[in-house]
Amino acid sequence: MTFAAVLETLIKIGVVFFVALTAVAYLTLAERKISGWIQDRIGPNRVGPWGLLQPLADGIKFMMKEEVVPSYAHRPIYMAAPALLLISALSALAIIPFGDRLSLGGYEVRLAIADVNIGILFFLAMSSVGVYGIVLAGWSSNNKYAMLGGLRASAQMISYELGLGLSLIGVLMVSGSLRLSQIVEQQGSFSSWNVWSQPLGFLIFMVSAFAETNRLPFDLAEAETELVAGYHTEYSAIKFSMFYMAEYVNMITASALMATLFFGGWQLPFPAEAAGVEGNHLALLQILCFLIKTGFFLFVFIWVRWTLPRFRYDQLMHLGWKVLLPLALLNLIWVGIGVAWGWF
């Protein structure tokens, strides 16, 4: 690796990190605002205009609060669990292509941190490492609610990873590559977006992604009416906020992947010539397009959370194993026929 390549990667990591964490801060506000809107209230509006400084106030509060460690907790694991969760969540962002390429004074920058050959497998690997953060948080707290939350989370995430993986295979069959940039390039025109050819696959991916991020209607791991707060019952202050941040980063990754895999990623919904711009302006337009798509799915995440009630645990397992898995296989057969006959 040359010095320029290392520098380029470092800058990209910095930018993505900054954007992701800022987005996380404002997603917490968006969550509360949208929930207020859905429930016909106003939501936070005291700190700054329209409550815009609320995330800042929350952040300061998290840092100032007292840290409590239960006396019978397994201390090293208790400390490491939230960090493990957040690190794996942030690493998964590295493979997402958020634009085509930008040329800065003749130097061409590819707009993805790591466009690797194994691409989407890296995301699966990181999400399976993330399970440890939750399970260990539950175990090390030495609290029965936390323990139950951790056990539920591990069973749930392993079960839904199958549906997630199988729904991805349809996309991979069409593009013939695990590399995300190639998957995006294959969806060049509006009509070739994967969602049109495999809507079932998209639906399965979305439902599994909801379960993987432990969001309602699948937040069995932290069901507050049964388990207090599930695996993070005993956590406070900055460590509690790390769980929160990891959840939102996972939401961002899942939304970005939905946009990338099924909705053409950074591709514009109309031919690039029709936009009337080229070069760097086109690249910026594509980044904007990617952000709008991702933002839409983030909105869907929040919308669903405040609309649907929670599943019962046996219903959750039933849905994962007996509904989503056979449907994913059906989707695979459908895509296989489509590819063999050359429909898409």
């Binding site: 690797v116 194994i118 399976s128 490492v129 399970v135 591990s154 069973a155 990873e161």
Partner: peptide, 26 residues
């Protein structure tokens, strides 16, 4: 062998070891 490396993390670390952890906690 990047493919085997990814499988190692997904399969071994992500599935088999979680199963071990699950049984130990159970």
């Amino acid at each position: 062998a990047p493919f085997i490396a990814a499988l190692q993390v997904i399969l071994y670390a992500g599935a088999i070891m979680v199963l071990f952890l699950f049984i130990i906690m159970l």
